[in-house]
Nucleic acid binder design. Structure first.
Length: 669
DNA sequence: GCTTGATCACAAAT
DNA sequence: CATTTGTGATCAAG
């Protein structure tokens, strides 16, 4: 396939290039004390955050060790007013020229990079965003902040490196990257808009982030095509229509039918390329292999009156595709049980239209119906969802199940143990503990902070709550438990806070939110995966276990989490800061641990970790929280990067890495 | 308390 | 540049 050629060249320069390569033989420096500017850290790394000074504004005082043009930290905007001017970085900040966020003409913008490909050029039309109609929100600090944010993120992403052919025919790396940018932008916009929320006015950060990505050419597979989309696999999940649009799976941002105009013998003709089945049109009876899809139209905009559907546009294209018998991509929109109103879109592969007919709808008007039948021999997707639902409901039991709940009730949800590969009966013995244990040998740190006694109903952003203030005035999570942006350190509420356990600022303390299973992998021993779909940024679990010192590392211990290792900046993360722990934390989960001990290493992981601190007046505890890097479909193994052990440091024995990634380093510890 | 419906602000392709 | 396509957040009502 043509994309295979493109895949060969790993494009990625997500972090600024090092002026001179870091010297791996440099003597290992003391952790968390002082890091030489050219120390053994990945490009863009900043020194460890001095956790004892955690209360004040963090960013401004920090040294910036590299002089290369670097992206502004994501969370560097502090107040909307100063946002536009937070750049001592670079001289051509868009905001200062008043560049608009939304352009009228996407094409002119998509060419808005210079040949060298490192900066946006100035051809972009300059107009302030139109006054937000009727909402009563003036063109505000919010807009300025978002504007500036977008610039920063897009620059950090080196979007300009992507040439047009790669844009037209993409690959997994680009698709992933585009979606990650979209989601980071979207979450960040949500956070910014939270500050100016007007009751009763629905905000659409998804649309706003989508428009930004579209206009800045942060998108993949722009060439419309029949059949598979490179970089998008069957079973991949999406949480917004905009994501389908940006990935090139389904172009219309709203309409359910995407089609192509084609010329046949000089005649205009059309054919359908993809549909989104959202259940919005009365019925869709299906058994997983067949889908009955209703045509579009027949509903009046304003008065919601029904009328007969017409055989035009999408409906016509479907009719033509029935006769052409071409493959049509099907995306199934399902209810997302993790979110009260949300939806998940599952890419269910290729179908063909076998029949069409007209039915009378409830209103008595004609509705077109199309029978879609799944092309045989494709990987399981929607049917897997159905099976999982049955396992959950107890209708059928999970094949290969060894134990229904290996936590023995220690978690809020059961975690089953499964082996459908061989006859090993389970991992070696350990005792299950849901959280990290501190002992006298590793006392808490002494932050002397003020606990909240204000938030009996749970803490709120933009309040004077001291716990929220420690996070820069905003709760670091969304209401769904999704991390809003990459943080240096998450300050959670702790035992002395008055807020309840379900406080939004206690996400890592609320227990598992998704059904996980520990399963036997083909060649990597036991692993961890989820029955539920996972939104990018979601909290998954913490790393439980027992704190140990560096001297206490047993080379036979394969269940070590070591925050003192170095970690590469995340794939496709625009943050200049790789995850760093402000504390020399090493955990062993050999004898005691939770589900996290089963997470295998990968050089292109789908999970990453963030330090979390739970602070009380006179004690505070660090924890390690695991979050999804991208959306993770059900049953896809959860993996994180174990990090690089510095030369001369004690650690477990080196092992051959089997992650199979293009960027595989070959070994891990 | 939890689901359902009404309302509203919006984007892309054509 | 207007039309065609629902979506997704929010809040009130059931």
């Amino acid at each position: 396939m043509h994309s295979a050629v493109l895949t060969v060249k790993p494009l990625r320069c997500l972090a600024p290039i090092f002026p001179s390569a870091p010297d791996p033989s440099a003597p290992p420096s003391a952790q968390y004390a002082s890091i030489p500017p050219n120390g053994p850290f990945p490009p863009g790394a900043t020194p460890f955050f001095p956790f004892f000074a955690a209360n004040g504004p963090q960013r401004p005082g920090q040294p910036r060790p590299f002089t290369i043009p670097s992206p502004v930290p994501l969370n560097s905007y502090k107040t909307p007013g100063s946002a536009a001017g937070n750049g001592n970085i670079g001289t051509s900040r868009g905001a200062s020229r008043g560049r608009t966020i939304v352009d009228e003409d996407g094409n002119s913008v998509s060419d808005g990079y210079d040949e060298a490909g490192n900066e946006f050029n100035d051809k972009t039309p300059v107009t302030r965003r139109k006054v937000r109609s009727r909402s009563g929100i003036p063109v505000s600090d919010t807009d300025v902040a978002i504007d500036s944010l977008a610039e920063d993120m897009l620059r950090a992403f080196s979007v300009a490196e992507i040439d047009t052919s790669r844009q037209a025919n993409s690959d997994k790396e680009l698709v992933d990257r585009v979606l990650i940018v979209f989601n980071l932008l979207r979450r960040k916009i949500t956070q910014i808009e939270e500050k100016t929320a007007v009751p009763g006015v629905a905000r659409r950060p998804d649309l706003r982030a989508g428009t930004l990505c579209m206009s800045k050419s942060v998108r993949a597979n722009t060439r419309k095509r029949i059949g598979p989309v490179p970089g998008v696999e069957i079973g991949d999940i999406f949480f917004f229509r905009m994501e389908l649009c940006l990935a090139g799976v389904h172009a219309p941002s709203m309409a359910g039918i995407d089609y192509m105009g084609v010329k046949v013998a000089g005649e205009d003709d059309s054919m359908a390329v993809s549909i989104v089945s959202s259940g919005g049109y009365e019925d869709e009876g299906d058994d997983g292999e067949v889908l009955i899809y209703s045509g579009q139209g027949g509903v009046q905009r304003k008065d919601k009156q029904f009328s007969d559907q017409q055989l035009v546009r999408g409906n016509l294209a479907l009719e033509k595709s029935l006769h052409k018998a071409n493959e049509v991509r099907v995306i199934r929109g399902l209810k997302d049980f993790a979110s009260p109103t949300g939806k998940v879109y599952v890419y269910d592969g290729l179908y063909k239209i076998h029949e069409s007919w007209v039915e009378k709808g409830k209103s008595g008007c004609n509705i077109f119906k199309y029978k879609f039948v799944r092309v045989a021999g494709q990987a399981e997707a929607f049917t897997l969802w159905k099976s999982i639902q049955q396992w959950k409901d107890g209708v059928t039991s999970r094949p290969g199940i060894i134990l229904p709940d290996l936590t023995s009730g220690a978690e809020s949800l059961p975690v089953c143990l499964v082996n459908d590969v061989d006859d090993e009966k389970g991992p070696s013995y350990f005792s299950y503990t849901p959280s990290l244990k501190y002992t006298k040998a590793f006392p808490s740190t002494k932050p002397s902070v003020v606990n909240c006694n204000c938030c009996t109903g749970g803490c709120q952003s933009n309040s004077d709550c001291p716990c929220v203030q420690r996070n820069g005035g905003q709760i670091p999570y969304t209401s769904l438990g999704v991390l809003q942006s990459h943080n240096t350190l998450i300050h959670e509420c702790a035992s002395m806070c008055i807020c309840p356990v379900n406080c939004r600022n206690r996400i890592s303390q609320a227990g598992l939110k998704m059904r996980l299973e520990v399963f036997k992998t083909k060649d990597k021993g036991w692993g961890l995966r989820s029955w539920d779909p996972i939104r990018s940024g979601s909290f998954i679990c913490e790393y439980a276990g027992v704190l140990i010192s560096e001297n206490g590392i047993d080379s036979e211990d394969n269940y070590i989490f070591d925050a003192t290792r170095t970690f590469e900046p995340l794939e496709a993360q625009p943050s200049e800061e790789p995850v760093k722990f402000p504390f020399p934390l090493i955990i062993s989960a050999k004898n005691e641990g939770n589900v996290a001990r089963f997470m295998n290493h990968s050089c292109s992981p789908n999970v990453y970790w963030q330090p979390i601190i739970r602070e009380n007046q006179d004690e505070s505890y660090f924890h390690v929280g695991f979050f999804a890097i991208k959306h993770i479909p059900p049953m896809q193994e959860l993996t994180f990067d174990y990090g690089m052990l510095l030369a001369g440091k004690a650690g477990p024995r080196k092992k051959k890495c089997l992650c199979g990634s293009l960027k595989c380093k070959g070994v891990f510890y």
